[in-house]
Design a protein around this nucleic acid. Structure first.
Lengths: 334, 334
DNA sequence: CTGAAAGCGCTTACAG
DNA sequence: CTGAAAGCGCTTACAG
């Protein structure tokens, strides 16, 4: 170890007690401003570093939050989750907390092996980012450790979720398309794959209902199987005027498929996405899409897990964070 | 807090001392196998969780390693770094360590503010993933905390680096292109931007030298400015037979630029990349490239930082990890 | 405004 | 094979 300066070392140098140093460094009452100042300066000078472990052993808090992401999301969804982590990290720092990122392997998920940081008490609570198996979620929840699920939800009502308002976002998007003159709107996504896709679909459907546009079977196009592996699109004939894709990546892939068939976007048909991630700008033309407000979601998740830790509250529920429309060139006005 | 079972609780239930429980749970000598077994079972049953903080305060180790990534890499290079972190995380877990991921903001980097986890002693050592400013690197190094730099290096010889063998990888790639009949090879990348690009360029140049192919000024094409922001390509006329790009993303963007000018790949000219990241398969045609062995690099970085922590060694040096060629359709044999 | 005492949960000698 | 004692670095009452 490079330096092991303790409060006592500082105290000795100044001829005061370590209690006084402790109070000074954490800005507590009961030390004269003058002494406080002197102590802080000396601490800085001696390269003192606060020993979190010592505090942890007293108050029982590690001041760390575990962030759990399944391995498979690391490769699949690009920088999406790393950026999410970044926002979490920023929100945590504001509360003097640190994030311990735990990548959950498929084996551990299947065998219901909780993160080591749980068993080591290295984290006071956990934020689970992205859908996991129900069995794993239950196992985790049963430990009683403060837990918030981010970016997905399940049918378990006793848990806490922070999600983007998928339903409302897609509802708004579909309303926009209809107001742009579209009447033949296909949805692209496997409705049985994730709760996000399901809700986006329902938002789309609500808009259709409100506008008395019938839902047509061949206008619901699968993009992946139940395990999340992408499959080939079945392009309906006749073509809809717009493809409402459940996410930008799928919109991106769809445009490629269409191009191969000689169908131009948006001249021959329009395409929209959801997320406003890298694929939205990678696509040609750029995608009209719904931006997920990850910053706000991160903030909400951190707030929730910290309040569970602090108040031991068992209140649960879903927090819906509103997204916002981003307009680009992939939609033709009719 | 949900559960606060301590070793003493277990000891009391069994009528033994907490010392015995401590020994049993950490598989130390001096407890009969029978008792050991009983203690472990009861611990499991009572939902005992090991209190790392208590150990930390004794031996001075947090059993955490800080992983520092600059914010800007989160958005720029896709899942590349998250996957890197995943490998680091796996390697750390094997050593009973956890990773604390710290996203470094641009302000903190400029103002030389070290990560909170450093000041909190929450980590025993650090792995810095991706290039940072020299001033920041120096400030970090001067603290004396065990430190390993991953995926880049600088001219400071007293530091530890783990990098991919950029030089050798690009040398091998260029050799392959020349053996495929190419004689007009342009390099795409700003040689003054990062050490990786510079080394890849030098590997390319070494191959040219060995084959007595002259280096031509207009065949060195800038892809970004010194700050790393991408700029428009200046396509040379006449066209080279192959563009040797410093990374897959740039190869991807170049192909798009070429396509707009009506130049087909690989029919009219070939393009190769480096990294084998998402852009290698996103590109059409798929890119022939060099795969970086991030798993091995992660393992090497973890090994190095842990040995610095454990032995307090000050030995330093560069570890070069070999990449491997990946052949796809973007190269035409001449 | 300042400090002596006790204790957080564990581990490390050491004694039996 | 088992356990009493001391101590890691801090904070929290409490006394002066």
């Amino acid at each position: 170890m490079q330096n092991n300066i303790t409060m006592r070392d500082i105290a000795n140098k100044l001829g005061v007690s370590s209690v006084t140093v402790s109070k000074a460094l954490s800005d507590k009452e009961g030390v004269s401003d003058e002494l406080k100042q002197k102590i802080k300066e000396l601490a800085q000078e001696m390269g003192y570093r606060y020993n979190t472990a010592a505090r942890a052993i007293k108050d029982g808090y590690s001041y760390n939050i575990g962030v759990v992401i399944a391995d498979r999301y690391a490769s699949m969804t690009q920088s999406f989750y790393l950026q999410f982590y970044q926002f979490l990290s920023t929100a945590l720092e504001e509360e003097q907390y640190s994030g311990i990122l735990h990548m959950l392997s498929e084996e551990d998920e299947e065998q219901l092996i909780l993160p080591r940081i749980y068993h080591d008490r290295k984290a006071d609570g956990f934020i689970v980012l992205g859908q996991l198996s129900n069995a794993y979620i239950s196992a985790f929840h049963e430990t009683g450790v403060p837990l918030v699920f981010l970016d997905f939800y399940t049918d378990k009502t006793e848990l806490d979720y922070v999600i983007t308002d998928n339903f409302y976002g897609m509802y708004e998007m579909t309303n926009y398309l209809i107001s742009s003159g579209h009447r033949e709107l296909a949805f692209v996504g496997n409705v049985h794959s994730t709760s996000s896709i399901q809700d986006r679909f329902l938002g789309y459907y609500k808009s259709l209902l409100e506008h008395h546009i019938p839902l047509r079977d061949n206008y619901i196009i699968k993009d992946r199987d139940e395990k999340g592996r992408f499959i080939d699109f079945v392009i309906p004939d006749p073509l809809p005027t717009v493809f409402v894709c459940n996410c930008d990546q799928v919109a991106y892939m769809l445009i490629q498929t269409l191009r191969k068939q000689g169908i131009r976007v948006p001249e021959d048909c329009s395409v929209v996405g959801f997320d406003n991630d890298i694929y939205a700008t990678l696509a040609e033309p750029g995608l009209t899409t719904v931006e997920v407000d990850r910053k706000e979601m991160a903030r909400a998740a951190v707030g929730k897990v910290l309040s569970k830790i602090r108040t031991n509250a068992t209140s649960s529920g879903r927090v819906l964070v509103r997204g916002k429309m981003v307009y680009r060139e992939s939609v033709k006005l009719i």
